[in-house]
């Protein structure tokens, strides 16, 4: 699927994020027979989003297999297999379906290296399709990244581009630490011309998606295209917005944030999950700690509403869009 650098010289075919993630899994499995993929419906069906399509056929049902409907068991089994020397990549079918596995993640996956003084690393990758915007009924649209980011011992990453989805997943599988890999399901069918195998920045590094001078939009996952659209519109009015895609929530690229906000003097943190106690609060606090005397305006957040994720007919009111981001930009511009 992804043989080769020869594609770099040829025009690359448009690739969806779902296909890029599939290619990353396939390439990692081809390179290392310790990489195994398992979860609910990942085998013959290829996953409900078809992200694992073809892996069972290609690598056999010892390398890619369906599990009982038991998320704690999936997570705990992955931990045991990692201790034994495998590199499990498990799928939690939907964001909210990962909750039964919380105890395994928090009490064991995140802590095993620490509690054994480094003797037992657990290189498990947990793939979680997350977020709304696909018209999902309840329990299918949560953004749960803050719970995981709050837990020391985990890396938490989320791609926003097709290229990053391949590269970050390869990085995650290569990592000796557990990685929670949040896949913005609204972007599964976004396309880009990408030559594989693509490698972008390391886990822990942010990326400037658009350069600007007036304000910084700090975002990740599904809000990156939202911020790009907002920046596009603002540019027509002469306001140049910088768009900083965090890519990795843990470790967080403090330097990239400080460098950008220190220059622009204004910061708007944009994410889809609930604002209260959310990851944006952490980013805003860190900006206040590091950039306070260079700020021209209060740091603001544009986030999901502080309500349970609403039904499909209501979600357009919930999801941060370019207009809501631009309103926040207007307030920031007026302040200084």
């Amino acid at each position: 699927m992804s043989q080769g650098t020869e594609q770099i010289s040829a025009p690359a075919a448009p690739l969806t994020m779902a296909k890029a993630i599939n290619a990353a899994l396939s390439d990692a499995m081809a390179e290392d027979d310790k990489v195994v993929v398992f979860g609910e419906d990942v085998g013959a069906l290829g996953g409900v989003f078809r992200v694992t399509d073809g892996l069972a056929a290609k690598f056999g049902d010892e390398r890619c297999f369906d599990t009982p409907l038991a998320e704690a068991s999936i997570m705990g089994t992955a931990i045991g297999m990692a201790v034994y020397g495998f590199k499990p990549v498990v799928e939690m079918q939907f964001d909210a379906f990962a909750y039964p596995a919380f105890e395994q993640v928090f009490s064991h996956l995140a802590k095993m290296r620490n509690r054994t003084r480094g003797a037992v690393p657990v290189p498990v990758v947990v793939r979680i399709p997350y977020g709304g915007g696909i018209g999902g009924v309840e329990h299918h649209s949560d953004s749960s990244e803050s719970y995981f980011a709050h837990t020391p011992g985990l890396h938490v990453v989320t791609p926003a581009t097709v290229e990053d989805s391949y590269s970050l997943l390869r990085e995650a599988i290569d990592s000796p630490d557990p990685v929670i890999f949040f896949e913005p399901k609204r972007l599964y069918w976004s396309k880009a011309n990408v030559a594989l195998p693509a490698r972008t920045g390391r886990i822990g590094t942010a990326a400037v998606r658009r350069q600007g001078t007036h304000a910084t939009l700090v975002c990740y996952g599904q809000t990156v295209p939202v911020c790009m659209a907002a920046a596009e519109q603002a540019a027509k009015e002469g306001i140049e917005l910088e768009v900083l895609d965090l890519r990795s929530l843990v470790p967080l690229d403090d330097e990239a944030i400080e460098s950008s906000v220190g220059r622009t003097g204004r910061a708007i943190v944009v994410h889809e999950s609930v604002g209260f106690g959310g990851f944006g609060a952490e980013v805003a606090a860190r900006i206040a700690e590091r950039c306070f005397y260079r700020l021209e305006a209060p740091v603001t957040r544009v986030a999901g509403l502080d309500i349970p994720f609403p039904p499909p007919k209501y979600e357009h009111w919930y999801l941060p869009d370019a207009d809501r981001v631009l309103d926040a930009v207007d307030r920031a511009m007026a302040a200084g």
Binding site: S73, M75, G76, T77, A78, M81, A82, Q104, S107, H108
Partner: peptide, 18 residues
């Protein structure tokens, strides 16, 4: 945490089997 070692045993056993 009670019983949480159970799935780890499954993982270790399955790994040995594979």
């Amino acid at each position: 945490p009670l019983a949480t070692q159970g799935p780890h045993a499954v993982g270790l056993g399955l790994a040995a089997k594979l």
